[in-house]
Design a binder for these strands. Structure first.
Lengths: 335, 335
DNA sequence: GACTATAGTGCAATCGATTGCATTTCGCAC
DNA sequence: GTGCGAAATGCAATCGATTGCACTATAGTC
């Protein structure tokens, strides 16, 4: 495999100036068709490939989008959370479809805030997709002009002056709990930490569903768990020990739901016989577990694609509005 | 947030030449300590950030490694396969620890082969990590000089002249099946497509375990399934219908194992009562399903870290040998 | 045949940082 | 006060491509 060929060498070989080569490679109408073909042939003969940094420097762009996944350690999230990983996959796929490269960055806690600016301002990425805004809304609002090149995944926050894409968390929560209530369940344990904006909204949905059904949700029926779910198993055991009564669980994520099911079963409870469980996300494994998990599909793949599309539109200068994707109830065996 | 500041502007503000600024920022010993401090202060006041393309152009490096995940569509793989995703997470984490950016590329079938060269030769990435070599060994061997900047994940292939990192597939298969045989199981159904190198090796392990136990594996007990597992559920139902007897399943991946368990249960078989099941990978969900999956841990996170380390060492010019990571049997409830 | 648009090319500056070499500054010895 | 070596700093070329502008063929017009 040949070593790097520079454009100057290619130009010499084709007996033209580099400017002509450049235009030919960019398919400019200024170059005669015949010359173009000639240059293209020689280019492929010599195995010429453009040097990205040189072009990017001159063009002041990078044809790259950055995906930033700022973990919130206190919430117990890790990069191996299936939700994140599926999102990475979805965005990677969408970006490559659009001919963009994708830089994935998982800043550690102390790099927070700096990471985004570094990617944008060093010119490494033309635009950014940030997953999650937990506790960072002020930071995001301070982005100022940089916000023009940012799309954030998360719950829609009214005060956001940046573009947010997310699923309709309230509606999702409502669908989930409406389904449980329709099934005749009456005491729904909510598992999730409503300090996180998305979770908060999903809980709103739960309350709304109760209201619509003429019920009120018992505030005791809340088990605040981060997304990680590390301690969820034992925490739930403790709830069961306490004798608190409930006949359904609505978990703020599938990982939490799966852990909850596991914990319930370990306690001798039958799912869905004794307790119905609904999750949130519809990650891949939800369908292949036993019992298959009833959950709220927030269409991660679509979400990833939409974020890429919106970002590219923003970069092109189009004005773009925040967007809320619809959610869908997927009924399986856990309810 | 300020707009881009160029190094020349920073130099002017600090009353020095750009060369001094450059050296100061790179902490060169040629610059007086006091001058360094002065420049660093002004730099942070002005919010200066270096322009990556410019530096990369000059330095002929990118401080970026590329992660290429060439899907083999015939094998039913998708980017959302938990194994890939966990690998992405592991590599992303390791790369960022080392101060490298990570470009993730998922070439579609027709981009195959071209993607790697593009990333390297355009200077977008200094080195490459390629996940999986299925059916591409000749291509990889043809990389020639480029191979110096590539590390591949996969089964160790004797004829490879590139660096391969992978788990000890033979030993893994052996451990899994040895465990089943120790548990008194006698007829082990192998689920996996041995056209894929790793799977082939795992199957070797199965045979080896039989040999050690003085048994021979019945060649009928093979269900060739790609990694995707789309049709695995129904294929296994068909096997059950056929009356073929087996009391254990060794699946070439956890996804396959999970699907198999689901299929068995749907058929009324009890796991592990009627059939014991062992998977391969130890993906996150293996531990939180019911029954929790006995599986071979191939330490994905370690693998990702090791690949990054080896790649960086190669880039630094050190000679590096291929590496086989140890595997470990994780016993849970499915056996 | 001279003249003017127009299509094609080439020239040279430029993007922003790095680095070999030349130059200045400084401290110190005589 | 001069000289000299070492320590700091500046100058200018360079990395590889893009692009505004100047220039030269070419075709078409009268």
């Amino acid at each position: 495999m040949a070593k790097r060929i520079t454009m100057a060498e290619l130009a010499r070989a084709a007996n033209v100036d580099t400017s002509t080569v450049s235009r030919a490679l960019n398919d400019s109408s200024l170059v005669k068709e015949e010359t173009k073909r000639h240059i293209l042939n020689i280019a492929s003969d010599l195995g010429y490939v453009i040097h990205a940094s040189a072009r990017n420097l001159r063009r002041q762009s990078s044809e790259t989008i950055g995906l930033v996944i700022p973990l919130v350690p206190e919430s117990g999230q890790t990069i191996s959370d299936p939700f994140f990983l599926e999102m990475v996959g979805a965005v990677a796929h969408a970006a490559s479809q659009e001919g963009y490269d994708l830089i994935v960055n998982v800043p550690s806690a102390e790099q927070q805030d700096g990471a985004e600016q570094r990617l944008l301002q060093t010119g490494r990425a033309d635009g950014l997709i940030i997953i999650g805004q937990a506790g960072r809304t002020e930071f995001l609002n301070k982005l100022g002009k940089l916000a023009e090149r940012v799309v954030v995944w998360g719950g829609s926050v009214p005060e956001a002056n940046y573009t947010v894409v997310g699923s309709d968390n309230v509606r999702g929560g409502e669908l989930a709990v409406e389904h449980l209530l329709n099934r005749g369940r009456e005491r729904v344990l909510f598992v999730g930490d409503s300090a996180l904006p998305e979770v908060q909204l999903r809980y709103e949905g739960l309350k709304k569903a109760h209201r619509v059904a003429g019920l009120e949700h018992d505030a005791d029926l809340i088990l605040p768990e981060g997304f990680g779910g590390k301690s969820t198993f034992t925490d739930l055991q403790r709830v069961l020990d306490s004798g608190l009564e409930f006949d359904a669980v609505f978990a703020a994520s599938d990982v939490l739901a799966i852990t909850a099911i596991h914990s319930l079963q370990a306690y001798g409870k039958h799912v869905p016989g004794d307790v119905s469980v609904v999750g949130y996300d519809n990650i891949g494994q939800a369908s292949i577990m036993t019992p298959a998990l009833t959950t709220i599909d927030q269409h991660i793949a679509d979400g990833g694609r939409i974020m890429v599309e919106l970002l590219l539109r923003k970069l092109a200068g189009t004005d773009v509005r925040s967007r809320t994707n619809s959610t869908e109830l997927v009924i399986r065996d856990s309810t």
